[in-house]
């Protein structure tokens, strides 16, 4: 346990000491929230009403967890730190948990800050916000697992492109945060609903409204994708570990 905690604590420090993490992790969701609330104040659109917007921004913020975890693993692979650690008593489970666990409180803190900012901007303070905050955890596992997966197979430069640009854009376009997916409809909407991002947003939106039962189908999508991504990530991480 001590070995795992030491490794997890190192990973947390490595992420939190990067100023980009602080900006994208905490600052960026707040900037988006402020900007869109300002637009909403001038030109009211139901999509950007604070109770509708905040869950989307929260999920969008979590997509940066993929970038953080993938970058950390890819850099550790390239600097040969992982190779060094493979000769220590750390087990494969220690590695996987060590990369995953530190990001959970970071994701939770990021979401808490986003909801706190939304409360200041007029979101009604209801107990359902706490429930929405709790369900950030399964959504985070999905995004962290994607990071573990990409970090195991890509270089840090590729991670920047795939996770930093492609994945954040995919999760933005296909999540219904910025526009109503039914307005596009057709194949685009079907693809979006076959992926987990829109379900993560719908899950959070339903919970903020205090509707637990309608939230559940979206939770199954998120959990299903999360478990599949985690299983694949573990497989790919172990494969690269063996390959070294």
């Amino acid at each position: 346990m001590k070995k795992l905690l030491t490794f997890a604590s190192r990973n947390a420090k490595e992420i939190l000491r990067d100023p980009l993490t602080l900006f994208f992790g905490l600052g960026f969701p707040i900037v988006l929230l402020l900007l869109l609330s300002a637009i909403q104040a001038s030109i009211p659109v139901p999509l950007f009403e604070i109770a509708h917007l905040t869950p989307g921004i929260t999920v969008f913020g979590l997509s940066f967890m993929t970038l953080f975890s993938a970058l950390l693993i890819a850099k550790d692979r390239e600097s040969a730190l992982l190779e060094r650690l493979y000769t220590t008593p750390l087990t494969p489970l220690d590695f996987i948990l060590g990369y995953t666990l530190p990001l959970l409180p970071i994701a939770l803190a990021q979401s808490a800050v986003t909801y706190a900012a939304a409360l200041i901007l007029g979101l009604a303070p209801t107990p359902s916000i706490l429930l929405a905050l709790a369900f950030v955890l399964p959504v985070s596992v999905l995004f962290i697992a994607l990071g573990l997966l990409f970090g195991s197979i890509l270089t840090d430069k590729q991670v920047g492109g795939i996770c930093g640009a492609l994945l954040t854009n995919l999760s933005a376009w296909l999540s219904g945060i910025w526009f109503d997916l039914s307005l596009v409809g057709g194949v685009f909407e079907k693809i979006a609903y076959a992926l987990p991002f829109v379900h993560a947003v719908e899950l959070e939106r339903a919970l903020v409204r205090g509707e637990l039962i309608p939230a559940l189908p979206h939770l199954w999508w998120v959990l299903g994708y999360g478990i599949a991504a985690l299983a694949l990530a573990v497989l790919l991480f172990l494969r690269q570990m063996k390959k070294r």
């Binding site: 600097s79 040969a80 060094r84 000769t87």
Partner: peptide, 12 residues
């Protein structure tokens, strides 16, 4: 082993 690359944690 002290690998070819520095193999240190840069932010620590």
């Amino acid at each position: 082993v002290s690998p070819q690359e520095s193999a240190v944690a840069p932010a620590l």
